[in-house]
Amino acid sequence: MAKDITIYTTNTCAYCVMVKKWLTAKGKPYQEVNLDETPERAEEAYKISGQLAVPVTVVTKDDDQKEVIIGYNLAKLAPAVS
């Protein structure tokens, strides 16, 4: 089970919208960090993912293990949030 889902996004990123649409369809609540509104957190997204790209989805499991999924990748997102 996921305790927390946080997505790093930007205003114009269509793949970010898809991650949000998919999570909503699955009934999974999430928090969003919009890097256009909080540019100071871009470095944090880079540190977590090692990539200069969004969406970055961080799934915190019940045992506090974190899984980081880069991009709109259902093959990885689905098992991570299940």
Binding site: T10, T12, C13, A14, Y15, C16, L35, D36, P39, A42, Y46, G50, Q51, L52, A53, V54, I70, G71
Partner: peptide
């Protein structure tokens, strides 16, 4: 995705 990109609206903000 570490400096090479194909989607400006996605990754430009970095």
């Amino acid at each position: 995705a570490k400096g090479v990109h194909y989607c400006a609206t996605c990754d430009g903000a970095f």
